[in-house]
Amino acid sequence: MIGRPAITAAILAGGAGLRLGGRDKGLEPLAGTPLVEHVLAALHGVDALLIVANRNHDAYSRYARTVADAAVDRHGPLAGIAAACAACDTPWLLTVPVDCPDPPGDLAERLLRGALLHDAQAVVAHDGTTRQPLFALYRRELAGAAAAAAAAAQGVWSWQDAIGARELDFADRGQQFQNLNTPDDFLPHAARTRFRG
């Protein structure tokens, strides 16, 4: 997109990894490579990178500038989105979760095109079956609204509804929104069948 506004991509890596025994999901190896590296390799059409993590900052900072949630008692994805918005230096912020190793390569481009077409301050991917609330694009100016909603323990989905986020159709990429949650998901066979099958 010629002359398009700049986008910062934020990888949300602040989860507790409970189904992995508390291990940091983004640093778990998939096919011998930390999961976060798969996500980074799949990101296209962005101008800057952020990682939102609440532990292992030294490990994540090897890949990109790393920020934490604003307060330790504000866990959850919306707190991560708020922290990323506050740290964003570009007009737009793209969010993706660290547990999805193969997000659509045209995610940023399509979301931005939809945002500009609909004059929306936030757009979110829909995989043809359901909204994918962590795959979204926001105007940087939403930082304050995100922080207030996170402080009130609001969920991402309801906050997106409150700010009038538009859903964009990604049914043609539906398989690419699947994520890894359990140790079995990280096995080579499981990874091949889930993401490339």
Rank of each mutant, 00 (worst) to 15 (best):
P104D: 01
L137T: 03
H57L: 15
W159S: 04
F195P: 06
L35E: 06
D89A: 08
A145T: 13
H57Q: 15
E109K: 08
G128H: 10
V67E: 02
E167Y: 11
A125D: 01
A165R: 12
T66F: 03
W92H: 12
T129G: 14
L78C: 09
H126E: 11
A147M: 13
G197E: 11
D47K: 00
G105F: 01
I11A: 02
P104C: 05
S61C: 10
L93V: 09
V123L: 00
G80K: 10
A146R: 02
A191H: 13
T193E: 12
Q178P: 02
A148C: 09
E28V: 14
A70W: 09
L40E: 06
R139F: 02
A68P: 02
I81P: 08
I7Y: 00
Q176N: 06
D69Q: 13
L142N: 07
P104V: 03
A120F: 04
V156T: 13
V72E: 15
P34S: 01
H189Q: 15
Q160E: 14
D184F: 07
Y63P: 01
A115N: 08
T95Y: 04
A171D: 13
G14L: 01
R131L: 15
P133S: 14
A71I: 13
A145W: 11
L78P: 04
H118G: 03
V124S: 01
D73G: 00
G197W: 07
L142K: 06
I51S: 07
G164F: 13
Y63V: 06
Y63M: 08
A146G: 06
A191V: 13
A9R: 08
P5R: 07
I7P: 00
Q160A: 05
G32T: 03
A120H: 03
H189N: 14
A162V: 08
V124K: 00
A125K: 03
D161M: 02
A162L: 09
T8R: 08
E109T: 10
A150F: 06
A87H: 12
T8N: 04
L111Y: 08
A59E: 14
D161W: 01
R4C: 12
L187T: 14
D73T: 09
L12W: 03
A115T: 10
L35M: 12
G3C: 06
C85F: 10
Q132H: 10
T130A: 15
T90D: 05
D73V: 00
A6E: 13
G26W: 03
T90K: 02
E141I: 11
L111Q: 05
W92T: 05
G14M: 02
L117Q: 04
G164M: 13
I11R: 05
V67K: 03
A41V: 02
